[in-house]
């Protein structure tokens, strides 16, 4: 094995320097700054969303978009939703508060002038409810339920690649890993967040984050409450669970 001594005239090639600079250089901000005042390793680790230390949740810095639910932010890597990628929300049946979770995100997407695409929601999307939640329906597009699955996936991929769509919501109960991988890549290339609503969890999904929703019991006092488990998230080393109040965002 070849080793480099300190006296060696030829400095070792940096192993990671190049690999991590390319697509994520924007996270580092201005390149010149990083050259002049070299940041500490701590800072570098905190700023880069693709680097994490498995043992430390708190030290990962803030690079996510806030979910609007402090308890949920607490257990998500980067303290919020990721900037892009695929998100899976698993609820045994529809209506368990899965949309409620995303309302603060939808609002911020609309405020940024981006569009929200709903791909074949299981029922009629009800406009008055969106307006009540503070979501401008002018920037909402719906692809009908009757659309063929192939076409729905195609539209989802295209929408994820388009920068104008800030959020793509799709209801697909089962998708093969290959398709999910493709969607994940599309979302990364368009820096768009895609959300898949599913009934069942699939273990080897390449999605960035998988959330499991569990409804409260039929106790009237707990109507607002929902239990959210982060089954998997890039950056989390074990599933974390929290309880949160869903209906605090109603205006």
């Amino acid at each position: 094995m070849k080793t480099y001594s300190e006296n060696s005239t030829k400095a070792p090639e940096p192993l990671f320097g190049k690999a991590y600079k390319g697509p994520y250089s924007h996270i580092d901000g201005n390149d010149q700054n990083t050259l002049t005042d070299t940041p500490s390793i701590e800072e570098l680790l905190q700023r880069n969303a693709d680097l994490w230390r498995g043992c430390d949740m708190a030290g990962q810095g803030v690079h996510g978009r806030s979910t609007g639910y402090p308890q949920l932010d607490e257990i998500l890597p980067g303290r919020g939703w990721p900037q892009n990628g695929l998100l899976e929300i698993i609820s045994p049946q529809w209506g368990m508060g899965e949309l409620q979770l995303l309302i603060p995100l939808m609002r911020s997407v609309i405020e940024q002038g981006q569009w929200i695409l709903w791909i074949s929601p299981p029922h009629l999307l009800y406009a008055p409810a969106l307006v009540q939640a503070g979501i401008n329906t002018d920037q909402v597009l719906v692809v009908n339920l009757e659309t063929a699955c192939k076409d729905a996936l195609w539209s989802m991929e295209k929408a994820l690649q388009t920068k104008n769509c800030g959020l793509v919501l799709a209801w697909q109960t089962w998708l093969p890993g290959k398709v999910l991988r493709r969607l994940q890549l599309a979302a990364e290339s368009g820096s768009t967040l895609g959300v898949l609503f599913k009934h069942r969890d699939s273990k080897y999904s390449p999605s960035r984050i998988r959330l499991q929703l569990k409804g409260s019991s039929s106790d009237i006092n707990n109507f607002n409450e929902a239990e959210v488990t982060v089954v998997k998230a890039r950056g989390n080393f074990r599933p974390l669970t929290t309880r949160l109040q869903l209906y605090q965002h109603h205006s």
Binding site: A127, V140, V143, N144, W154, K163
Partner: peptide
Amino acid sequence: ARQYSDSNLNQFMEQLKARLGGHFVNSINT
């Protein structure tokens, strides 16, 4: 505000329409 140009969106919508047909893509209103 509006850093995403409309032309991109229009292109995307045209593509959607070309593939799905106009009546499959909807916008909603109250």
